[in-house]
Amino acid sequence: MPLPTEVRLFEMAPRDGLQNEPGPIVPTAIKIELIERLARCGIRHIEAASFVSPKWVPQMGDADAVMRGITRAPGVVYSALTPNLRGLEGALATGVEEVAVFAAASERFSQKNINCSIAESLTRFEPVLERAQASGIRVRGYVSCVLGCPYEGEIAPHQVASVAKALSQMGCYEVSLGDTVGVGTPLAAKHMLEAVSRAVPMKHLAAHFHDTYGQAIANLYAVLEEGLSVIDAAVGGLGGCPYAKGAAGNVATEDVLYLLEGLGIHTGIDLDEVVDTAFWITQALGRTPNSKVAKAKGAGKLNATQ
């Protein structure tokens, strides 16, 4: 199958990137500026916050303030994770345009992460989907552990397909397939996507790969070859998973953009601006970007000024 001519990049840094950030709570003003910087880079889909209990996810305790504080750019969708009805109501009050729910392809991961089975988690989402649809709000679905689980190991593709199909049938307009642990390899990614795309049309699927073993870019190329055209990424490679020891952050937005530009695939996003944003946010967090592209371009800029 030919590669897609365009790819929609879904920016995860403000939510999935920051939600597990260790240490002090990231100031609301920093989160707002990050979101606005990302929009100025040309990114048109940003997951900005998560309406969950601050007891469980302290970094997302200011979701209301973040959603109300951002200056919304024309043509940009600002979404929020809303795992339950209470979270959805909070998001709706801020004028959210899109929300998301999440399930796992692993029973043990589901129990560890949200204290219920996969079937129970899907049942919990039913009122969220109904309320969102009644309000005219689109819902995106996430499936965790699609290429491996820290507790169960390898996950059968048919398990992923089953959960993805359930989310789609409930009304999720798009299902994002997450390699939460970052253990996937290109052939495994292809096999998984082949199984899922038989249950959910490819145009309604996205890839959400973490880079623990340095395979995320290779895995993304593999699924691009299968016709997938929506990619989740986080500037600077921010993120991680508290339930998966050693799991690195999301694939870096700048690394994905470098790949796509090399393939001649249009995104409408300014790579250099994304790199600048990666350095800005990681400096605010007290470190440097995890991505190869940011480090290479950053070194080039430094050498040019010397």
Score class of each variant (00 low, 15 high):
Ile231Asp: 08
Pro27Asp: 05
Ala132Thr: 09
Gln111Tyr: 03
Leu238Glu: 04
Ala48Asn: 05
Tyr78Gln: 13
Met12Pro: 00
Lys112Met: 11
Pro289Leu: 14
Thr71Lys: 15
Gly262Val: 14
Glu33Gln: 12
Trp280Tyr: 08
Arg140Met: 09
Glu120Lys: 08
Val200His: 07
Tyr258His: 15
Val223Ile: 13
Ala199Arg: 04
Glu36Leu: 10
Val96Ala: 13
Ala161Val: 05
Val183His: 02
Ser168Pro: 00
Leu3Ser: 07
Gly23Trp: 01
Gln159Cys: 09
Gly239Asn: 04
Gln215Gly: 02
Cys41Leu: 01
Thr267Phe: 10
Thr277Val: 14
Ala164Gln: 08
Gly239Tyr: 00
Leu257Phe: 07
Ile43Tyr: 03
Pro24Val: 01
Arg287Asn: 11
Pro289Val: 14
Ala134Ile: 06
Val26Met: 01
Ala104Asp: 11
Val175Ala: 08
Pro201Ile: 04
Ser110His: 09
Pro83Met: 12
Ala39Met: 07
Lys245His: 12
Asp255Trp: 08
Gly268Leu: 03
Ser135Val: 00
Val77Ala: 10
Gly23Lys: 02
Ala296Lys: 12
Gln306Ile: 13
Asp62Thr: 05
Asn303Lys: 14
Ala49Arg: 02
Met60Ser: 03
Asp270Phe: 03
Glu174Trp: 02
Tyr151Ile: 07
Phe209Trp: 12
Tyr78Asp: 15
Val139Ser: 07
Val235Leu: 09
Phe51Met: 13
Asn290Leu: 13
Leu122Met: 11
Thr123Gln: 15
Ala284Asn: 05
Gly246Ile: 04
Glu6Val: 06
Ala100Ser: 15
Leu260Arg: 05
Thr123Leu: 12
Ile118Lys: 05
Lys203Asp: 15
Gly90Tyr: 11
Trp56Ala: 14
Tyr142Glu: 04
Gly171Val: 06
